[in-house]
Write a protein that binds this DNA or RNA. Structure first.
Length: 800
RNA sequence: GCCGGAGUGGCGGAAUAGGCAGACGCACAGGACUUAAAAUCCUGGGACCUAAAAAUCGUACCGGUUCAAGUCCGGUCUUCGGCACCA
């Protein structure tokens, strides 16, 4: 019989929908399971073949869980605010709302065609006012607690287009549209104080089950470093200059200091700085540099000495010069550093260039050639009371010294910066704040949420880079919620990360009008049991959403500290040329074509069989055909069907081993070997020429999560009860996993020389007897000096 | 620079509490079926030397531990990813 995938797939998708079997019921007595995938950005290009990789994987997990008796929540929605849609609107004049609705409709149809077992009753859309009402609500809570604030921050600005650009629009320091150099411009921006949660985000990682590399990347991103803050007195003044250092042990070697170009110290000592004009020039020079240029010049240090002002090294009591240089960042530590050229590479380069003396305080290197930065080896020298100590010991001693003199203490710093939480764009959530001349920044009252995005005809930013919303006069001009006098609305919108920072909460109770979700639903479903997505979202999206979730926990809104109990990540699907798929390379594969030509089950099977799930894998049209062939062989098993309520004795061991292998492999996301095991089993069945009903029933259920449509069809054919998707997951019988006899490899001097058939758990003596016969010609005339026998594994004979 | 992966046939990839390297699939070759082709089914296969077998060599490279190493240890190279003038 012909495998008519198209007919079968449509038939079962319709049946699933009519029976609504994938609906998740809050409060069901069954154990709950919350499986989550990253919701897509509904772009105009439609679904990418990369989407089904992660989606199929979690669909397999969800379907297996249902078969294991869980109440499964597997939801989907749309992360629909964002730049590409707005840019499309600018180009075509089609309103983002219209484009978004069309794109969502397209994506929905594509996802349905792939047979994912989503609960479509819980579909959400971040651009729906009923959704972003709660995004705004969370923002107001953050504002209330002082975690949302306005501050000057650097933005990418194109001086030619007079537009603020997102990072992805200014790659390589060049404007995406006109190609001119992007400059860093200071602008008042909304910021979220995520740094206040740095330690909590770090500690939370100990409680969750993420892949090790994911935890590593998050720790790296947070970037905790332990050190000390130390005050340096300024000669002839009561003022102090405070620095952060991780190497307080090298204090005796600090021969100069450097402050960032933006440091307020310059203003404070304006009158004493003899070369003030030169310093001002340097500040202007540094401000002009783009982020890109600053990164380019990591080797060549620039800077200017602040003449007429000296600091005093608190350890040596000696005067040292102060420089201003852009290799010191204003937004890390205190914006000022003590410089130990003998033991820090950057300080070394700076000192060499400016002819500043070096003092070796850790022996073990050659500081004429390069800075000696090894902290494991080396002994303190030229350091008075620290001499002879190791770095670790010296640090402890130094902390005591700082405390005694009251000039510093231990301090922990984080590389992570506060989150720039504003875009000068139209297609995003409006920030629900009103600016009043009398009352300052006033939050929009909660009962006036959602603050809806006004319908605009025109989406260009203003000449100065303000949001297009400044053109919406009627919307911008409002009254102050506090004093009732005329006031203006905030025109910046939220970044794309906003809606995705809490969407998993909304799924548990998506139609709630009184809360982001009911307590009952959150208590039942949270945390997310398993979250899979791309590696590219492991830092920003995940850190942002963990931050919001932890904040909501702290104010008593959500019941768990961490949102995601487990997180895995899939690799990219590359083009057939091994390169990342892109329009310009012309190596894009459209999933619609594959579904049309081979079927959804084949696409699903192929994407799971393509290779190691966690690694990138190149697409191969030929391999797709191989998977189609496999499913045809599966389908044709109905022609070899015979009666039987139990696995036949000669098949039992093979089948039960496959049950175990497939069950285990799915749990560890080794989908490729799970499918390989099913292929091996079907080869055995073909070799035998027949399959009985019991055997086929097991096979169908094992394959069902991976290729559900064909399995439903066959389940119906063999008279299975209900849906295969809801049938019981097969269990293996441990007794049936072992065979009566095994093939035992024989080695001589550790080299493979033959095989013998022996009973399981065969005695050493019996095995050796048999082995001697098998390899008689090879040991003839030699003496056996030693025999290594590992039961059921190997027999190694050592001869002389 | 720092941190973390990864290097296995023509290709995608299997196999690590050390125990038959190359499962499974693709591509390829041969056979069956067919007037023929496609499809399907069956068979074959790391390299080298062969009529065939045996032997030898083979998991990036060099060395080590062991009866036995893709797997462990020391070093080197290549490559991918993350962070990055972070003091």
């Amino acid at each position: 019989m012909k495998y008519n995938y198209s007919e079968i797939e449509q038939k079962w998708q319709k049946k699933w929908e009519e029976a609504n079997i994938f609906h998740a019921e809050t409060g069901s007595p069954k154990p709950k399971y919350y499986a989550l995938v990253e919701f897509p950005y509904p772009s105009g290009a439609g679904l990418h073949v990369g989407h089904p990789r992660g989606y199929t994987a979690m669909d397999i997990i969800s379907r297996k869980r249902r078969m294991e008796g869980y109440n499964v929540l597997f939801p989907i929605g749309w992360d629909a605010f964002g730049l590409p849609t707005e840019n499309y609107a600018l180009k075509t004049g089609i309103h983002p709302r219209v484009a978004t609705d069309a794109n969502i409709a397209h994506f929905r149809q594509q996802l349905k065609a792939l047979g994912f077992s989503f609960d479509w009753d819980r579909e959400i859309d971040t651009t729906d006012p009923n959704y972003y009402k709660w995004t705004q609500w969370i923002f107001l809570k953050l504002f209330e607690k002082g975690l949302a604030y306005k501050s000057k921050a650097l933005v990418n600005f194109c001086p030619n287009c007079k537009v603020v650009l997102a990072n992805e629009e200014s790659q390589g320091g060049v404007c995406d549209r006109c190609g001119s150099q992007v400059v860093q411009k200071e602008k008042e921006q909304w910021m979220l104080k995520i740094t206040a949660y740095a330690q909590k985000l770090l500690d939370g990682l100990d409680e969750v089950d993420y892949l090790p590399r994911i935890k590593m990347e998050q720790r790296n991103w947070i970037g905790r470093s332990e050190g000390a803050e130390i005050d340096f007195a300024i000669s002839g003044s009561d003022e102090k200059l405070r620095v952060f250092t991780t190497r307080c042990d090298t204090l005796f070697g600090a021969t100069f200091m450097v402050i960032s170009p933006e440091h307020q110290f310059v203003d404070k000592f304006k009158d004493r700085i003899e070369n003030y004009a030169e310093v001002e020039d340097y500040k202007a020079f540094a401000a002009k540099k783009s982020e890109f240029e600053r990164k380019m010049q990591t080797k060549d240090k620039t800077g200017v000495e602040l003449k007429g002002v000296k600091a005093i090294n608190p350890a040596t009591g000696k005067e040292i010069p102060i420089y201003i240089s852009d290799y010191v960042l204003n937004n890390y530590g205190t914006g000022a550093i003590m410089c130990v050229p003998a033991h820090d590479t950057r300080d070394w380069e700076f000192a060499k260039k400016f002819g500043i003396p070096m003092i070796e305080v850790i022996s073990g290197g050659d500081i004429e050639k390069e800075a000696f930065t090894d902290i494991e080896n080396g002994t303190l020298v030229n350091s008075d009371f620290l001499n002879g100590l190791t770095v670790k010991q010296a640090q402890e001693k130094m902390f005591e010294f700082l405390a005694e003199k009251n000039i510093g203490e231990k301090k922990i710093n984080y590389n992570m910066h506060d989150w720039v939480y504003a875009r000068q764009r139209y297609w995003g959530e409006p920030v629900p704040i009103v600016h009043c001349e009398h009352c300052g920044m006033v939050p929009v009252p909660y009962d006036q949420l959602p603050l809806e995005l006004p319908v605009l005809e025109q989406f260009r930013q203003s000449e100065t880079g303000e949001s297009p919303l400044v053109h919406a006069d009627e919307w911008v001009n409002t009254v102050c919620p506090k004093c009732g006098r005329p006031a203006k609305r905030e025109t910046d919108t939220m970044p794309q990360w906003a809606g995705s920072s809490w969407y998993f909460l909304r799924y548990v109770d998506p139609h709630n009008n009184d809360a982001l979700a009911s307590e009952e639903a959150m208590k039942y479903w949270l945390p997310v049991d398993w979250y899979n997505g791309g590696m590219e979202h492991v830092t920003r999206h995940m850190i942002y959403s963990r931050f919001w979730h932890r904040f909501l926990y702290d104010i008593g809104v959500v019941p768990t500290k961490e949102p995601y109990a487990k997180r895995t990540a899939h690799g990219l699907i590359l083009g057939e040329d091994g390169q990342k798929m892109s329009k310009s390379r012309g190596n894009i594969v459209n999933p619609d074509d594959i579904v049309r030509d081979y079927g959804a089950d084949t696409l699903r099977t192929y994407e799971m069989f393509i290779g190691d799930f966690e690694k990138p894998a190149p697409w191969s049209d030929d391999s797709v055909k191989g998977c189609k062939r496999f499913l045809e062989r599966v389908y044709n098993m109905t022609d070899m069907l015979i009666d039987g309520d139990e696995c036949r004795p000669d098949m039992a061991s093979k089948i039960h081993k496959t049950i175990k292998k497939v069950s285990d492999d799915i749990e560890s996301m080794k989908f490729n070997t799970a499918i390989a095991a099913l292929m091996t089993l079907i080869n055995d069945i073909y070799a035998k020429g027949s399959v009985n009903k019991a055997e086929l029933s097991i096979f169908i259920r094992l394959l069902c999560p991976i290729a559900p449509h064909i399995c439903e069809e066959m389940w119906e054919k063999i008279g299975g009860e209900g849906f295969a998707s809801m049938a019981e997951w097969p269990k293996f019988d441990a007794d049936k996993l072992v065979d009566d006899t095994i093939e035992l490899p024989i080695q001589i001097q550790g080299k493979m020389r033959g095989k013998i058939i022996v009973p399981v758990d065969c005695d050493e003596a019996d095995a050796v007897e048999l082995a001697k016969k098998e390899v008689a010609d090879k040991i003839e005339g030699k003496t056996i000096v030693k025999v290594i026998y590992i039961k059921n594994k190997i027999l190694n004979i050592i001869v002389k």
